[in-house]
Design a protein around this nucleic acid. Structure first.
Lengths: 195, 195, 195, 195
DNA sequence: GATGAATGAGGCTTCATTCAT
DNA sequence: CATGAATGAAGCCTCATTCAT
């Protein structure tokens, strides 16, 4: 049994180094050293530093999407599905702070700019799930009449900000708080029953 | 009247180049050229590239804070003051997309990591204004009982996400939409007077 | 019957790759791939890349010399033997452009510099044949009184230049032209019997 | 008075190193050291190693062409002009063996391949002079009826071969010999007055 | 103060060669 | 014998910073 697949080692080393020091503070030589391989070895698995960075992004994204799909309460009411999605993502990223940090950096770099809208939840998978919720919600007049991008921002914007604070130790996001926060997000997009 | 203060020229050139190409895509030599000065000249005004970057951040922050203070309806009700703050910031950043882009990059770089909590509204100034609103709001039971960091994220998180979309052209933030969005933010932090 | 001797495959692959891209555009790994063997395998047959290159040179040289010997009209008059030699070489290299390209590259590289005089026809074999012609020719006062190196250059120099043009498609060397050219070469070394 | 223009120093160092060791045996770092400058300095004058190599080629070519033009006996008979051209080139390259070695290497590399026909005498200048001689010579039926490329090869091919031998010390090209050789070249292209 | 040529450390990448399987 | 993953030295180039003018 091989515990160490070199490709995986490189990705992990890159993840750690890049989240800690940024793309430009993570030379290939250092990534190699941290991964326990020679510098040249990285190039057997990744065409270039850019490719390594892009590939790592893709892998993390896949894992995140998988985490969101897993346990998604398809048949349940709108609100419940929405709360699940936000909560699951929040929990995943709290459990994997490096993933969060990496994704954040990626989107704020020339790499991620081409990804635009397909951001944190870019993969068709989870993105569509969310969009379905929004669509259905607006049709049923449960959710405010907003462009999807606005709903998206209201739903996920706070999370990013909160995760940073959590990682930096400014707040502790325990289960109770997470629940309250997801509900607050729901409040921002749900229609006010002015009736 | 000095139309061209070299220091200002350098800052402006740095702003444009860095927002367009990132910190590492903006060599000092190019900044100098764009600013119409010699490379060495920059070092008369800034100790190093890092200092230039930090200084630029500080200047932008100052201007943003000033913009928020200006016209702030001190004596008015809580909700109105809150809406004003969010709306003013949104409007300022829409009017100054480079400022937004720069601040975003800054926070997502090793530079910004040391800034922690003091983010977009880091300067005591505006930050305090907002914190006062939260404090008073919670005391008066108008706003949900949350750690301030959470309230902050609920209030400003969506905005950052929206600004990106706006700058990238995915949505058009006109005055009507801005008003609706700020109200949605308010919905997420205001207490549901179901009692 | 061995259709594929690995050693031969490697030499052929090297020939093709090197003539196409130069010594430095032909990595061992690529030669190996083209030869259908593993990179390490090459080192069973050749001590190093340098040795491979040198060895390939030697093999091509052997084949060229063999081609010249074959059909050489030993008993015939001087002029005829001379014309045969030039013509045969020209025809061989036209038929094997890769051989020509390789030899050319070889001589113009640090490898070939150590080969000095032993150039295209370096191997004692054909070289001697030519030298005999020159010697006899001078003795019989049919050929100009020149150092052998000069006669050699007059005889073969034009050919190299022409082959390049032919390979590059600037001229088409058909049989008629070849005959005329070999005669022109003869003109340059044959004594003008003006006396 | 500046004896050392850094650009010139770099070109000279490159010339020496490349002729001695080939393009790939002449690292930029070494060229820099030999030129007495820092590695990075080269890039102020040349965009890349390729550009340096190409530029050096151009400069040498210019000098050679200038040497050929200088003293060219425009008004004199065809034969004299031809002999002058060959002789002048031969003399120039004997006096500047590094130039010859460099040009040779250049043409036998991927760089020079794109130069094709425009070889040693590529610059319109001298090339045209030669072509004019050929054209006029054929019209006046003084020169054999050959494609220009063939005449060119007959005229210059031997020279290249001879220069190598000279540089390697196999022969000594003194003025007497040079004159005889140029005449031999003339013999190869001039029409045989079979009349 | 201003200039910009010069510096040289450091980054990314290639590739000949080795060696465990 | 053959394999091909791994190695790491070495090459090209960039760019923040300095300093003589």
């Amino acid at each position: 049994m091989k515990t160490s697949d070199k490709r995986t080692d490189v990705l992990q080393a890159a993840l750690e180094l890049i989240t800690e020091r940024g793309f430009h503070g993570a030379p290939m030589a250092e990534i190699a050293k941290k991964a326990g391989v020679a510098a040249g070895t990285i190039y057997r698995y990744f065409e270039s530093k850019d490719m390594l960075i892009t590939e790592l992004h893709r892998e993390l994204e896949d894992r995140i999407v998988a985490a969101l799909r897993d346990g998604y309460p398809s048949g349940r009411p709108l609100r419940e599905r929405f709360l699940y999605l936000i909560g699951a993502l929040l929990r995943y990223l709290i459990a994997h702070p490096l993933h969060f940090r990496y994704m954040e950096q990626y989107f704020n770099s020339p790499y991620g700019i081409s990804l635009h809208r397909d951001r944190l939840l870019g993969k068709p998978g989870s993105h569509d799930i969310l969009m379905d919720i929004f669509k259905q919600g607006m049709e049923e007049r449960v959710i405010k009449e907003f462009p999807k991008a606005v709903l998206f921002s209201l739903a996920f914007g706070p999370m990013i900000s909160l995760l940073r604070d959590h990682i930096l130790g400014f707040i502790v996001l325990d289960d109770t708080l997470i629940e309250q926060i997801t509900e607050a997000c729901w409040d921002s997009i749900k229609r006010n029953n002015t009736a």
